[in-house]
Lab assay of single mutants.
Amino acid sequence: RTVITEEFKVPDKMVGFIIGRGGEQISRIQAESGCKIQIASESSGIPERPCVLTGTPESIEQAKRLLGQIVDRCRN
């Protein structure tokens, strides 16, 4: 099985929602997708915060879908 790493950007102001209380939301996304997610600790003042996704191509797609759902929910 091929493990790859891909960068994905999330809106900086939504990082708190993505991580969740005590990290529970990000842990759930990682468990559900099987993908490791590392969010940069600093956005360096830019509106997007880079995340590094590591896993199989399928797990990365699943993680991006779950992250996208959270971002959409927070935008509305």
Score class of each variant (00 low, 15 high):
residue 1 R to D: 15
residue 1 R to L: 08
residue 1 R to E: 09
residue 1 R to S: 11
residue 1 R to Q: 07
residue 2 T to F: 12
residue 2 T to C: 06
residue 2 T to H: 10
residue 2 T to I: 15
residue 2 T to K: 14
residue 2 T to Q: 14
residue 3 V to G: 04
residue 3 V to A: 09
residue 3 V to S: 09
residue 3 V to F: 09
residue 3 V to Q: 08
residue 4 I to Q: 08
residue 4 I to L: 08
residue 4 I to M: 09
residue 4 I to E: 10
residue 5 T to H: 09
residue 5 T to G: 02
residue 5 T to F: 04
residue 5 T to K: 09
residue 5 T to D: 03
residue 5 T to Y: 04
residue 6 E to L: 03
residue 6 E to D: 08
residue 6 E to P: 00
residue 6 E to G: 04
residue 6 E to S: 11
residue 7 E to P: 05
residue 7 E to F: 15
residue 7 E to H: 14
residue 7 E to Q: 09
residue 7 E to L: 11
residue 7 E to T: 14
residue 8 F to N: 02
residue 8 F to P: 01
residue 8 F to M: 08
residue 8 F to I: 08
residue 9 K to R: 08
residue 9 K to A: 14
residue 9 K to L: 13
residue 9 K to V: 11
residue 9 K to F: 12
residue 10 V to Q: 01
residue 10 V to A: 03
residue 10 V to F: 10
residue 11 P to H: 03
residue 12 D to L: 04
residue 12 D to P: 10
residue 13 K to T: 09
residue 13 K to G: 12
residue 13 K to Q: 13
residue 13 K to C: 10
residue 13 K to M: 03
residue 13 K to F: 03
residue 13 K to I: 03
residue 13 K to Y: 15
residue 14 M to Q: 03
residue 14 M to A: 04
residue 14 M to L: 10
residue 14 M to G: 02
residue 14 M to W: 09
residue 15 V to C: 06
residue 15 V to I: 06
residue 15 V to H: 03
residue 15 V to D: 02
residue 15 V to Q: 04
residue 15 V to S: 07
residue 15 V to A: 10
residue 16 G to S: 12
residue 16 G to L: 05
residue 16 G to D: 14
residue 16 G to M: 06
residue 16 G to T: 09
residue 16 G to Y: 05
residue 17 F to E: 15
residue 17 F to Y: 13
residue 17 F to N: 05
residue 17 F to G: 10
residue 18 I to D: 05
residue 18 I to L: 08
residue 18 I to F: 05
residue 18 I to E: 04
residue 18 I to A: 03
residue 18 I to C: 05
residue 19 I to C: 07
residue 20 G to L: 02
residue 20 G to H: 03
residue 20 G to F: 02
residue 20 G to W: 02
residue 20 G to E: 06
residue 20 G to I: 01
residue 21 R to T: 14
residue 21 R to M: 14
residue 21 R to S: 14
residue 21 R to C: 08
residue 21 R to W: 04
residue 22 G to Q: 08
residue 22 G to C: 10
residue 22 G to E: 11
residue 22 G to L: 05
residue 22 G to R: 13
residue 23 G to K: 08
residue 23 G to W: 04
residue 23 G to D: 07
residue 23 G to F: 06
residue 23 G to I: 02
residue 24 E to D: 10
residue 24 E to G: 11
residue 24 E to L: 06
residue 24 E to H: 15
residue 25 Q to D: 08
residue 25 Q to G: 10
residue 25 Q to C: 13
residue 25 Q to A: 07
residue 25 Q to T: 05
residue 25 Q to I: 06
residue 26 I to A: 04
residue 26 I to W: 04
residue 26 I to D: 01
residue 26 I to S: 02
residue 26 I to Y: 02
residue 26 I to N: 01
residue 27 S to L: 08
residue 27 S to M: 11
residue 27 S to E: 13
residue 28 R to M: 07
residue 28 R to A: 13
residue 28 R to Y: 04
residue 29 I to G: 01
residue 29 I to A: 03
residue 29 I to N: 01
residue 29 I to K: 01
residue 30 Q to W: 02
residue 30 Q to H: 03
residue 30 Q to E: 15
residue 30 Q to D: 01
residue 30 Q to F: 02
residue 31 A to N: 11
residue 31 A to H: 15
residue 31 A to I: 13
residue 31 A to Q: 14
residue 31 A to L: 09
residue 31 A to P: 01
residue 32 E to Q: 15
residue 32 E to P: 00
residue 32 E to L: 11
residue 32 E to F: 05
residue 32 E to K: 10
residue 32 E to Y: 10
residue 33 S to I: 02
residue 34 G to C: 03
residue 34 G to T: 03
residue 34 G to V: 01
residue 34 G to E: 08
residue 34 G to A: 06
residue 34 G to L: 03
residue 34 G to Y: 02
residue 34 G to S: 08
residue 35 C to L: 01
residue 35 C to H: 01
residue 35 C to V: 05
residue 35 C to P: 01
residue 35 C to Q: 01
residue 36 K to L: 10
residue 36 K to H: 14
residue 36 K to G: 06
residue 36 K to P: 00
residue 36 K to S: 12
residue 36 K to R: 12
residue 36 K to M: 09
residue 37 I to Y: 00
residue 37 I to A: 01
residue 37 I to P: 01
residue 38 Q to I: 07
residue 38 Q to K: 13
residue 39 I to N: 01
residue 39 I to L: 06
residue 40 A to D: 14
residue 40 A to V: 07
residue 40 A to N: 08
residue 40 A to K: 13
residue 40 A to F: 15
residue 41 S to T: 13
residue 41 S to I: 07
residue 41 S to Q: 14
residue 41 S to V: 08
residue 41 S to F: 04
residue 41 S to L: 09
residue 41 S to W: 04
residue 41 S to N: 15
residue 42 E to G: 13
residue 42 E to F: 07
residue 42 E to Q: 12
residue 42 E to M: 12
residue 43 S to P: 15
residue 43 S to W: 05
residue 43 S to Q: 10
residue 43 S to V: 10
residue 44 S to W: 06
residue 44 S to G: 13
residue 44 S to V: 10
residue 44 S to Q: 14
residue 44 S to C: 09
residue 45 G to Y: 04
residue 45 G to H: 09
residue 45 G to N: 13
residue 46 I to R: 11
residue 46 I to M: 10
residue 46 I to Q: 14
residue 46 I to A: 15
residue 46 I to C: 15
residue 46 I to Y: 09
residue 47 P to Y: 06
residue 47 P to I: 13
residue 47 P to C: 12
residue 48 E to G: 07
residue 48 E to C: 05
residue 48 E to T: 06
residue 49 R to V: 10
residue 49 R to Y: 03
residue 49 R to I: 05
residue 49 R to K: 07
residue 49 R to G: 05
residue 49 R to M: 04
residue 49 R to L: 04
residue 49 R to T: 11
residue 50 P to H: 11
residue 50 P to W: 05
residue 50 P to D: 08
residue 50 P to Q: 10
residue 50 P to K: 12
residue 50 P to G: 13
residue 50 P to I: 14
residue 50 P to C: 10
residue 51 C to W: 05
residue 51 C to Y: 02
residue 51 C to F: 14
residue 51 C to M: 09
residue 52 V to C: 07
residue 52 V to K: 14
residue 52 V to H: 09
residue 52 V to A: 12
residue 52 V to P: 00
residue 53 L to M: 05
residue 53 L to A: 02
residue 53 L to F: 02
residue 54 T to C: 04
residue 54 T to A: 06
residue 54 T to R: 13
residue 54 T to F: 02
residue 54 T to I: 09
residue 54 T to N: 07
residue 54 T to L: 05
residue 55 G to M: 00
residue 55 G to E: 00
residue 55 G to T: 00
residue 55 G to V: 00
residue 55 G to L: 00
residue 56 T to E: 08
residue 56 T to I: 03
residue 56 T to H: 07
residue 56 T to C: 07
residue 56 T to V: 07
residue 56 T to K: 04
residue 57 P to T: 14
residue 57 P to D: 04
residue 57 P to C: 05
residue 57 P to V: 10
residue 57 P to G: 06
residue 57 P to W: 09
residue 57 P to Y: 05
residue 58 E to G: 11
residue 58 E to C: 06
residue 59 S to W: 00
residue 59 S to V: 03
residue 59 S to H: 03
residue 60 I to P: 00
residue 60 I to N: 04
residue 60 I to F: 01
residue 60 I to A: 01
residue 61 E to Q: 13
residue 61 E to V: 11
residue 61 E to D: 15
residue 61 E to K: 12
residue 62 Q to Y: 07
residue 62 Q to C: 13
residue 62 Q to D: 14
residue 62 Q to H: 13
residue 62 Q to M: 13
residue 62 Q to G: 10
residue 62 Q to S: 13
residue 62 Q to A: 13
residue 62 Q to I: 11
residue 63 A to Q: 00
residue 63 A to F: 02
residue 63 A to R: 00
residue 64 K to R: 07
residue 64 K to I: 03
residue 64 K to H: 02
residue 64 K to D: 00
residue 65 R to E: 15
residue 65 R to W: 09
residue 65 R to D: 12
residue 65 R to A: 12
residue 65 R to L: 13
residue 66 L to F: 04
residue 66 L to T: 07
residue 66 L to N: 03
residue 66 L to W: 04
residue 66 L to D: 06
residue 66 L to Y: 08
residue 67 L to S: 00
residue 67 L to N: 00
residue 67 L to M: 07
residue 67 L to V: 08
residue 67 L to K: 00
residue 67 L to E: 01
residue 68 G to F: 04
residue 68 G to Q: 08
residue 68 G to H: 09
residue 69 Q to T: 09
residue 69 Q to R: 14
residue 70 I to G: 03
residue 70 I to Q: 09
residue 71 V to L: 07
residue 71 V to T: 12
residue 71 V to W: 04
residue 71 V to F: 07
residue 71 V to H: 03
residue 71 V to S: 06
residue 71 V to A: 06
residue 71 V to R: 05
residue 72 D to F: 06
residue 72 D to V: 07
residue 72 D to S: 12
residue 72 D to K: 11
residue 72 D to H: 13
residue 72 D to L: 08
residue 73 R to F: 07
residue 73 R to L: 07
residue 73 R to K: 12
residue 73 R to E: 15
residue 73 R to G: 15
residue 73 R to T: 15
residue 73 R to H: 14
residue 74 C to Q: 14
residue 74 C to Y: 06
residue 74 C to D: 09
residue 75 R to C: 06
residue 75 R to T: 15
residue 75 R to I: 06
residue 76 N to Q: 05
residue 76 N to F: 15
residue 76 N to T: 10
residue 76 N to E: 13
residue 76 N to D: 15
residue 76 N to R: 15
